[in-house]
Design a protein around this nucleic acid. Sequence first.
DNA 1: TTAAATGCAAATCTTTTGCACTGGC
DNA 2: GCCAGTGCAAAAGATTTGCATTTAA
Lengths: 147, 147
Amino acid sequence: MDAAEADFGGLGPKAGCKDLLLKAGLRPTRQRVILSKLLFAGGTRHVTAEMLFTEARAAGFPISLATAYNALKQFTQAGLLRQIPPNGVRSFFDTNTTPHPHYYLHGEDTLLDIPAADLLLASAPEALPGHEVSGVDLIIHLRRTPS
Amino acid sequence: MDAAEADFGGLGPKAGCKDLLLKAGLRPTRQRVILSKLLFAGGTRHVTAEMLFTEARAAGFPISLATAYNALKQFTQAGLLRQIPPNGVRSFFDTNTTPHPHYYLHGEDTLLDIPAADLLLASAPEALPGHEVSGVDLIIHLRRTPS
DNA sequence: TTAAATGCAAATCTTTTGCACTGGC
DNA sequence: GCCAGTGCAAAAGATTTGCATTTAA
């Protein structure tokens, strides 16, 4: 499948990332279109702002780092991404926005999905009075076994 | 119970925070003793570096913010604290180092313990080959209900 | 055309580091 | 007394903001 022709967000086989952005209420500006292609054309991805910035430059699109940050934030607020802060240093952004747990590999500073059925909650999370659950983060922290 | 005489870390009723620090392999310097009193004399606490810094100043101990950060990091590495990054902005440090889930209240930027039995994992987390589980973070994100 | 909304330089906020100096042993 | 190891000023790193400019409609 050509990346530019990927099936974006269940919008149908002809939809492009412009449609994805429009549907999310974001104007499909040049930079957003570029970044959304990089993010959503492949499979599930876990990127940091720096990674996306570097990738865009390598692809010949000289965006600024601030634009990468702003786009990631806007995409997250629009529901296209999920923000995961595993370590207090920098955040990752996951193109899979459905609730699912993650492995975080400390040595490699890498975030991975945990295959869905491997780990489940025993009960649905309860909110406090006057509040509602807006998300659930489950992160299993891994270190390389000393051997 | 007088705060200065609290039972620190199961070391017995006579132990002070100096013993707690020594047992953790940290020299009981003046600043560390002050900060450990603030952290461990009361019940369970969830503090940021800024909160601890402000609290120390208010108590008449003019430490620098860097010292608060460094002490929190050292205490965490020594196993006296647990670091929790709920939001990609700043980290909280929990004086309860046993594995347990948290509520994070977005509007108030507050971290709370979830009473233990309310939420459990259905299965023990599995590591990947060549890795071991070094920690599990479960955070339920709450927002104030629009009403 | 036009104004809503962007992209980015500069600022801000969080956290770490280098090193002069201290204070625990 | 002495030197391992601190405490903090300055630096580094992560993220946000203000505003001149762009560009989608």
